Simulated assay, not measured.
Amino acid sequence: MDPRSEVLLRQADLFQGSLLLTGLPADDLLGTLGNAHGWCWHAGDQAALGARFAGRSHFGVEAPTQAFDAAVLFLPKSRDLANYLLNALASRLGGRELFLVGEKRGGIEGAAKQLHAFGKPRKLDSARHCQLWQVTVEHPPVAQPLHSLAQRFELVSGEAALQIVSLPGVFSHGRLDRGTELLLEHLDALPVGKVLDFGCGAGVLGAAIKQRYPQSQVHMLDVDAFAVAASRLTLAANGLDGEVICGDGIAAAPQDLDVILSNPPFHTGVHTNYQASETLLKKSADHLRKGGEMRLVANSFLRYQPLIEGALGNCRIRAEGNGFRIYQATRR
């Protein structure tokens, strides 16, 4: 069981009424706390929770409409996302309890200071390198609509410009990261057809491809519901069309692709996790048609080239810069 869940269960007698577990891990916590429901935005976690606890986990970027007597927030990595979630929960909990749990390495002590806006927080427990905090919401805030927290920036590619819309919690929120910037400089001579932007984030690559290759059918895939919402906003802001998919890894992608583009993720929360990226590389041949191409950017220290060669039989380094490499391979 996740150590944050174990800390919660040490104080299980506090959770007798209806409880909303926000950003919960896909462990057995819902099975132990019979009055609890979840709120999740990670497609893989939601699938696991739905299979074990049908009807007890809400999926999406907005809080569930059902009433709850108390709520627990599992502290996310992004401070902007934590702010949005705390506001969404506290706005519904006037006079009731809001709990915050997280790992010390994830910044739980600093995040707990944000609870002062709602009342007088106190630390309830510290164990397994985690802390649990509680506040009675004496000053419930006015709920902030998610769209009001969107950040927009302009991306100029050649003579064309794109408006990128980012939401709290999305990778590189509000700015263009260096890896994606390098890949954008090397999108020439791509096959036209079915294109996948894997780990699409705010939709930078997918929107750029649709703008540059309007005949292509663009598919954008991310495991995170906030990223999917941001990608849809980016497409709409530029009058572009594309399919945006919320799914867990390359298995959720279409078949017979002509191109896979990616700045693949290698973090889950505060932890390093290469599984989604390595599965993408190993399974790429299952989704590319013959002659299809994969082009991706990654930190130079990541040993992706052998994995790509093992899957597609070839791989070359197309460009390097600022600590990143662009890999290119073709399914033969």
Score class of each variant (00 low, 15 high):
81 L>C: 09
30 L>R: 01
19 L>I: 13
30 L>A: 02
77 K>E: 14
61 V>P: 06
9 L>R: 02
26 A>C: 12
54 A>T: 06
20 L>F: 07
37 H>F: 11
84 Y>I: 04
77 K>H: 11
53 F>T: 03
14 L>I: 04
48 A>R: 12
23 G>D: 06
20 L>T: 07
42 H>T: 00
27 D>C: 09
86 L>C: 07
78 S>G: 11
71 A>F: 07
69 D>R: 11
83 N>C: 13
64 P>G: 11
75 L>C: 09
26 A>F: 06
24 L>N: 03
21 L>R: 02
13 D>M: 05
33 L>W: 00
72 V>Y: 05
86 L>W: 02
69 D>H: 13
86 L>H: 03
78 S>V: 07
74 F>E: 05
58 H>F: 14
82 A>H: 08
52 R>F: 01
47 A>N: 08
40 C>P: 04
25 P>M: 10
49 L>D: 07
61 V>W: 03
76 P>T: 10
69 D>E: 15
38 G>K: 01
27 D>E: 08
44 G>E: 03
56 R>M: 08
60 G>A: 11
10 R>W: 01
32 T>A: 04
63 A>D: 05
33 L>V: 00
80 D>Y: 10
12 A>I: 14
45 D>F: 10
73 L>M: 10
13 D>W: 10
71 A>N: 08
13 D>C: 02
17 G>W: 02
21 L>D: 01
44 G>T: 01
47 A>T: 13
85 L>M: 11
83 N>V: 12
28 D>L: 08
62 E>I: 02
47 A>L: 13
9 L>C: 06
52 R>M: 05
18 S>R: 15
83 N>D: 15
69 D>K: 09
9 L>M: 13
39 W>N: 05
49 L>H: 09
18 S>I: 03
14 L>N: 10
34 G>N: 10
16 Q>A: 15
9 L>G: 04
42 H>F: 01
14 L>V: 04
44 G>I: 00
40 C>Y: 02
81 L>M: 11
15 F>R: 03
39 W>K: 05
85 L>C: 07
46 Q>S: 12
60 G>T: 09
18 S>H: 11
48 A>G: 01
27 D>S: 08
75 L>G: 09
51 A>W: 02
60 G>D: 09
32 T>R: 14
15 F>W: 14
75 L>S: 09
46 Q>E: 13
82 A>M: 15
77 K>Y: 08
47 A>Q: 15
18 S>D: 15
17 G>Q: 10
61 V>M: 06
55 G>Y: 05
44 G>Y: 00
53 F>S: 03
76 P>N: 11
